[in-house]
Design a protein around this nucleic acid. Structure first.
Lengths: 202, 202
DNA sequence: GCCAGTGTTAGTCATATGATCAAGATCGAT
DNA sequence: ATCGATCTTGATCATATGACTAACACTGGC
């Protein structure tokens, strides 16, 4: 009987939950399945968490945290277009790296829309906000309008989401890599044109 | 007691199913809920359809049909960029017009990924294929490589999917309209640059 | 008044769920 | 070696919900 401290067990359950949500959807993510995935047992799950809800709360913060990590990971001392590029690439790379994370996130957001519960929308919202903040910091010098920041953030989200849906649907990493490049070039061409339209608006 | 012929009833059930799938996900789309939404009862559903599966089959073809309709709706005698523009706008307009259809489609595709069952992926696949065909027809004269067609089709899908996710998540039609315009301009700038790179490749 | 198509009520049966418990196993400090 | 705290387990509960059905009731044309 391998004795594992509760803290580690909790982490295991969170990871397992992500995996199960990716594979079976939120509704299919039952305590039994999660326990099995975590190589534990239903009673163990309730030993670590009072309820399924409690576990899921941890899953939300885990997912949100990973987004923050990836988005803030880009170096802050750069230009707006460079920051945008890095964020988009970072997120897509992260999706590519972990299909389960990607799928779980999409399930979460989709589930949040159905329920009125705002936790899942919060994930999307927080991520977008982090993006905006990062973009704002990168373009600190060249007074850029908040509207433009919003626009860039939205385009980033769109390209990342579109990439995610396609990658999840087809599941072919080679194809996905190619499409990652396409998305980057789409962002690039649009950004140059868009920024040229508002040139160094002092 | 309003007597309604079976054919009409079937149509009602299909529409009801779309609504329920949008609101509760595929797993939450139970016969009870669908029947209730269709202002009928479970037994009536089984009077029109042998099984839930049978009804769902009709739902798939309904959704796939709507995509084909929208995509092929654009007039065929035009240029590649114009066709691309029209398709993207058409699809986004269609999403905007019917959130339930949009949500149901995304649920379907997501569900298809989870199951191994290919029916949902088929919807995505068919739609992409229809797009490719439409683009090919539009650019019939100016010998365009199949690779370029694929690329444009993918970008269209990405922008449409990204739009869909955002629109579903926030549900604000005013915002969505603005973002529709942004997506169109993204497509435009990218397409011009992309096509300029391969100028009239005779 | 009959009969085929249409509509309803009230169930059956099977399965899966989240949650909990009592009992045991293991460990670390004393 | 012992003892309390920490982990682990299989079994069980109460309940909800699912798809599907059987048997009966209404309607309207003939």
């Amino acid at each position: 009987m391998a004795r594992i401290p509760v803290a580690q067990r909790r982490r295991d359950f969170i990871e397992a939950a992500v995996e199960v949500i990716a594979a079976h959807g939120i509704d299919g993510a039952t305590t039994r399945r999660i326990a099995e995935q975590a190589k534990a047992n239903v009673a163990m799950l309730h030993y670590c968490y009072d309820s399924k809800e409690d576990l899921f709360a941890d899953v939300y913060t885990f997912v949100a945290g990973k987004y923050r990590e990836v988005i803030e990971g880009s170096d802050p001392h750069t230009t707006l277009p460079e920051a945008a590029r890095q964020i988009l690439r970072g997120v897509m790379e992260c999706y590519l790296e972990s299909p389960s994370f990607t799928a779980a996130t999409f399930e979460l957001v989709s589930w949040a829309r159905r329920q009125h519960g705002d936790r899942g929308i919060a994930v999307y919202d927080q991520a977008l906000d982090t993006v905006r903040k990062a973009l704002r910091e990168a373009s600190a010098g060249d007074s850029v309008t908040p509207e433009l920041i919003d626009e860039v953030a939205y385009v980033l989200a769109t390209l990342a989401d579109g990439f995610g849906v396609n990658w999840l649907t087809y599941g072919d990493a080679t194809v996905a890599r190619a499409q990652m490049e396409i998305n980057c070039s789409v962002l690039d061409t649009w950004l140059t044109t868009r920024l040229a339209a508002v040139p160094a608006k002092a």
